[in-house]
Nucleic acid binder design. Structure first.
Lengths: 115, 115
DNA sequence: AATTCATGTCGTATGTTTGCGTCATTAGAA
DNA sequence: TTCTAATGACGCAAACATACGACATGAATT
């Protein structure tokens, strides 16, 4: 039995590192940042409004919305023909904690080995 | 004069959004997270030690180090034949502030439109 | 000078992301 | 019921990221 070795080596890292990397990846595109900011700022949150707001096609925005939803950062609620999106408080808090913990961990001391 | 339209539309977003996205992209791979944690934890910081520590080839680690350096998160200091890497306090602080500001901005209120 | 060692650069193969047109679906309007 | 409107799913093409072997470079060692 031969196991084909794939290129992907992510499995070799710790779970916490993968978790941070995954949430960072979601935040690694300006469109998704813009969507989160839009949802934080507007009370209406209709999907179409978001596409209209962004300089991207409706299809592309829909894809970004799916990514954000999958990451647990937003929620979608059907409302008749339209879909109302909102920030997911729980997911945002989780992200906040993940980043907070990491940033605290990697804060360099005043006494650095390099000058 | 015809301008060929490229697929990449990042230019259409605000500078702040691009800045956050860029730093998030650097954090979007477990190897780079692991490197930052390693540098925070070890006083020696020699490039070779990092490659030995990670489950990746020396070449690949070198590439990740380059990315981190380019993002201003680490510094490299030549020391004879070896190179000593350290966290870049300034860059880490900058990242901390960027994420902090964004996370504050997109913190949902208790009164959410979705349930 | 020749060798060795630590490291970076280049080229390449493969995987992943992005963007968008087209189609399917489903709710409301006519 | 038929039509229209809002949206997600599918699939393709281009761009980008990842991994790494092979080569280049430059400092120490012999």
């Amino acid at each position: 039995m031969i196991f084909v070795e794939t290129m992907r080596k992510l499995d070799l890292f710790e779970k916490g590192q993968q978790e941070i990397a995954a949430i960072a990846k979601v935040m690694s595109h300006p469109a998704r940042i813009a969507i989160l900011q839009f949802l934080a700022a507007t009370p209406t949150c209709i999907s179409g409004d978001i596409s209209d707001f962004l300089p991207l096609s409706r299809t592309t925005v829909s894809q970004h919305l799916k990514d954000l939803k999958h990451a647990g950062l937003i929620k979608g609620e059907v409302e008749g023909l339209k879909i109302k999106y909102c920030l997911n408080k729980k997911g945002i808090e989780k992200m906040k904690q993940l980043f907070g913990d990491l940033l605290e961990e990697i804060t360099p001391e005043e006494e650095n080995n390099c000058l």
